[in-house]
Amino acid sequence: MQGIVDAFKPLHDLWLAFEAFMVGPGSPGLFGYWMVIALMMTGFYVVIAHDNLVKKIVGLNVFQVSVFLFYILMAKITGGTAPILAEGIKVYSNPLPHVLILTAIVVGVATTALGLALVVRIRNAYDTIEDDEIQAVEEEEDR
């Protein structure tokens, strides 16, 4: 048992070093933003590299959530609590980005619903939800 633990020790040390660099004291303190950018770029990639329209909408959602996370990250204050007034609490996280994102989430779902409805409609009209096949059908019709 101890042997297994010892075998993973270098990996664990590496992880601790990574953690200290990313979120510990003295780190640039930007790890959250970089994670957000990684998420955002994944969503972006899905939107531009995939032909399937449902997949594109999912990618758009991932992109959207990354922007929400970005706002919420900026609102956080170390040592602060959730912005609900209570006795004996001095530091609250910033409530304004929370409000904006609350609105944005609901609007985001509205746009998702509209997009998915359009996908259903496109499927009815072209019998496919792949972008390139739709284009092929269009060119066929133009000829």
Binding site: A75, A82, G108
Partner: peptide
């Protein structure tokens, strides 16, 4: 869950219900 950690409980509610 991440929003709860970041003190945005209202946003977390909405995201869990709506998202």
């Amino acid at each position: 869950a991440a929003y709860v950690v970041l003190d945005a409980v209202d946003v977390a509610f909405t995201e869990a219900a709506v998202g």
